[in-house]
């Protein structure tokens, strides 16, 4: 028994290793980009500057995380809420519509959402949050639906037959059983949005997309690489966090 818990604890420690490592690399890269100057000089020998310095990387990272977090939280609330609503008896009629929207929406490019959002919401952070929210909604809705529909009908029948209320059924049975699938949807949504948020730089939302856009505009590949490196590390950090979370919920 004590051996088993020992193994468990060791396992838990190992699972935290990946997210901590990626986060450390991310922070290190933000703070120590200057020290990689020599490396970037190889890529961009002719430019006057090879490390992006118009804004602090940490600030850009913070803004990036903020935008993605706000959009993702809203997407989770809306997406899970919508999927739950259309699987209740009262909302059943809307199930085909929502399921279809969720699959069609996925084929809609985020740039197009941005292009449509800017005239309505103006430049800045808001349009990118809206674009990310809409785009991130889809994998969440789709997976929540799949998770709820995948529950053994016998379980639902027994739960109702035993006298659980709708709310008890949802909170104690359906959501916990669907949680791994829902979480996988959130993971996809957040990871995609971390990459997609960079596009926000084109409509004036300053984040880790800035060095990339600026690099493309000024023909400075080193800037592009720095933005891409940090976005990649952020995506890996968050993804490994989800990987850590996933098995504990099953």
């Amino acid at each position: 028994m004590s051996e088993a818990t020992g193994i468990l604890r060791g396992g838990a420690r190992r699972r935290w290793l990946a997210p901590v490592l990626w986060a450390a690399l991310l922070l290190g890269a933000c703070l120590g980009m200057e020290s990689l100057q020599g490396l970037f000089r190889l890529v961009e020998p002719d430019s006057r500057r090879v490390v992006y310095a118009r804004a602090d990387f940490l600030v850009l990272l913070g803004r990036h995380v903020f935008v993605v977090a706000v959009a993702s939280l809203a997407a989770v609330a809306l997406g899970v809420g919508a999927a739950v609503a259309v699987t209740r008896r009262a909302g059943r009629d809307f199930l085909p519509l929502v399921a279809q929207l969720a699959s069609i929406g996925q084929t809609f490019p985020p740039v197009a959402v941005l292009a449509l959002a800017v005239p309505v919401l103006g430049f800045g952070t808001l349009p990118i949050i809206v674009a990310l929210l809409l785009y991130g909604l889809l994998p969440i809705v789709r997976n929540t639906l799949a998770g709820l529909e995948g529950i053994d009908p016998g379980v639902r029948e027994a739960a109702r037959g035993m006298g659980m209320t709708g709310g008890q059924l949802l909170r104690q049975v359906e959501l916990p059983l669907a949680a791994p699938v829902i979480l996988a949807g959130i993971r996809t949504s957040v990871t995609i949005n971390i990459a997609t948020a960079a596009i926000g730089a084109t409509v004036g939302a300053s984040n880790l997309g800035d060095p990339i856009i600026s690099g493309i505009v000024n023909g400075n590949t080193a800037y592009v690489l720095q933005g891409a490196l940090l976005i990649g590390l952020l995506a890996l950090t968050v993804d490994s966090l989800f990987a850590r979370l996933q098995p504990t919920l099953t």
């Binding site: 016998g154 029948e157 027994a158 739960a159 037959g161 006298g163 049975v173 059983l177």
Partner: peptide, 21 residues
């Protein structure tokens, strides 16, 4: 009330419907 009625009755089905979690 539906729930009150059901809690007064036992219900067992072939698929058992045990909660897997």
């Amino acid at each position: 009330r539906e729930e009150t009625l059901r809690r007064r009755m036992g219900y067992a089905i072939q698929s058992t419907g045990l909660f897997p979690h």
